[in-house]
Amino acid sequence: MLVIDSVSKTFNPGTVNEKKALDNVSLSLADGDFATIVGSNGAGKSTLFNAITGSFYVDEGRIILGGDDITYCKEHTRSKVIGHLFQDPLKGTAPHMTIEENMALAYLRASTSRHAYFSRISAKEKAKFREQLSLLDMGLEDRMKQPVGLLSGGQRQALTLLMATMVTPRILLLDEHTAALDPATADKVLALTEKIIAERNITCLMVTHNMHQALSLGNRTLMMDGGRIVFHVSGDERKKLSIDDLLDQFRIRAGKQLDNDRILLSK
C-alpha cells in the first residue's frame, strides 16, 4: 500500500530556474492497485517516481509505503522494497557482468543478514535463476554466462523486469518501460509485465504516453499536469471512458490541450 500525502518539491528554489515540480500531490494506492499515469512533458510524472524511490527528499509532505514512513529513508534502503524500471533499457542492468551475476545482485534484496556479503552464487540459486529466465521465453536461460551488454534492448528490459520483481516489491514503478522498444518487443514485455503483476498481485504505478494503454491496463488512471494530479478515474466510470473522453477531460482540467510530442492516440 502506498500513501503519498500532500507532497511538494521545488527544484532550484530562489533562482531564475526555480521549478515547482510537485505541487501538493496526494495519492493513495491500495494493495494490488495498478494505476497508469498520463500527462504532458514536464508534468511531474518522473519526478513523482523519483520522490518515491528517494533520488531526492521532498520539501513537504509524507510518503508511506506498506505502513512505513519512508519520507526520509535513504535511497538504497527503500529500494529493497521498490522495483523501478526506466525507459532506457541500459539503466537497469550492469552491461559488463553476466546475466547470472546481474540476477544475483537483484536477489541480494532477499538477504537480510550481513554475513551474506562473502557468500557466492549457489547452485540452488543458479537453478532458480535459470527457471525464471526460461519463463521469459527468450532463450536467455542458455546464455547465463554471457555479459548483459550483448543482449538486445528488449531482452535487457525483460531481464530488468524479472530482476525488479524477483523479490516481490511492495510497489513496482514503470517509467515508460516499453517506449524505447520496437512494437513487437514492446508488446511482449508488456504482456510479461501484466502477467507478473497479476500473478503476484503487485501494486504498480506506470507512466505511459499511449492513451490506449492508459485506459486498458490496470484499474486506475491518473492524469498529471504542472506537478499536480488533475484527473483521477477508476472503476465503472473508467470502463466507459474513451480516448477522446480522456483528452477532453485533460482539456477541461488543465485548461489546455494535452501537448506531448510522444503521445500515442491509437493502439
Binding site: T53, E75, H76, T77, S79, K80, I82, G83, H84, F86, L90, K91, G92, T93, A94, P95, H96, M97, N102, L105, A106, L108, R109, M163, A164
Partner: peptide, 10 residues
C-alpha cells in the same frame, strides 16, 4: 558498471 542499477538493487 551501472550506478543507477546498483541504487535500485538496494
Amino acid at each position: 558498471d551501472n550506478e543507477h542499477m546498483v541504487r535500485a538493487s538496494s
